[in-house]
Simulated scan of single mutants.
Amino acid sequence: MSIVRKAAITGWPVAHSRSPMVHGYWLKKYGLEGEYGRQAVDPDLAEKFYSDFSGSGLVGCNVTVPHKEIAAAACDELDDAAAAMGAANTLWLDGTGKLCGANTDGIGFLGNLDQLAPGWDSDAGTAIVLGAGGAARAIVWSLLSRNFKSVHIFNRTVSKAIALKEEFGTRTIAHPWDKLVDYLGQADLLVNTTSLGMTGKAALELDLSDLPKSALVTDIVYVPLKTDLLQQAEARGNRTVDGLGMLLHQAVPGFERWFGIRPEVDENLRSLILSDLEQDG
């Protein structure tokens, strides 16, 4: 009798995570005898949980807030992205019992654009990134990996943008938020990594008048699926990509590690998650 491989989303809280729906869809699609559940990890117990991960009964897990840094610190090996960011969102035990960690947020961001806007990075010139949090860090890293010539980071607290710039070096430039109007005209890519525009949050309130029509606009927010930023960009003729695919593509590497098959982000999966989002809305 074969042992059922089990993985889970871990964090605090995890009740509303859609990861079990994503991985459950793939397990069913590929006919695999695996399980993917939810495991709430109390912040006071997080360090012990990840340090003793081999005793959890899981072959691996996803990690959500606020445990990504603690999880990375507990790993024996990290991929380049997780090492650069000091944060891991995907863990697995290798054949020797070592705990390995990856940060797949950047992979998810790139995979989404590759799928929905093929050739988007063929002229990797100037990117403008709004925000300087954890998601921005992953996205800046991923843009530099695709050889963008310059990545301009705009944040209301400029010290956070400066800290990111210092991490990533000369191709990144930090700016205060109010300087955005001076640089929008140079953009080949505009990315919103903030929560502005999300349902229940303040609006982004951005004037795109100076943005070149050739620029691609994307938003990591996916509730609502089509944010005001994307609606405004679409109305003026810019290509746009919504944020849902980033959630789906970042899940691919973990599933492959735990269950041995590289899954596809297909239209049926996207429709399943969209339907669930609409029910919540």
Results as ranks from 00 to 15, higher is better:
4 V>I: 08
6 K>L: 04
8 A>T: 08
8 A>E: 04
10 T>N: 12
16 H>E: 07
19 S>A: 01
28 K>W: 11
30 Y>I: 04
31 G>N: 11
32 L>G: 09
36 Y>V: 08
41 V>L: 13
43 P>F: 10
61 C>L: 08
62 N>R: 02
66 P>V: 06
68 K>Q: 09
70 I>A: 13
70 I>D: 10
72 A>G: 02
74 A>L: 03
88 A>F: 03
88 A>L: 00
89 N>M: 04
90 T>I: 00
93 L>Y: 07
96 T>W: 00
99 L>I: 04
106 G>W: 05
107 I>G: 07
109 F>V: 13
111 G>N: 14
116 L>P: 02
118 P>N: 03
119 G>W: 13
120 W>K: 10
127 A>S: 07
135 A>E: 01
135 A>H: 06
137 R>V: 13
156 R>H: 05
165 K>N: 15
168 F>T: 09
172 T>N: 06
180 L>K: 02
180 L>Y: 05
180 L>F: 08
180 L>D: 08
185 G>E: 13
193 T>Q: 01
198 M>N: 14
202 A>H: 12
205 E>V: 12
208 L>V: 08
208 L>R: 07
211 L>W: 11
215 A>P: 01
216 L>K: 07
216 L>H: 06
216 L>A: 09
218 T>W: 06
221 V>E: 11
229 L>C: 01
234 E>I: 00
235 A>Q: 07
272 L>I: 00
272 L>P: 04
275 S>C: 14
278 E>W: 11
281 G>W: 14
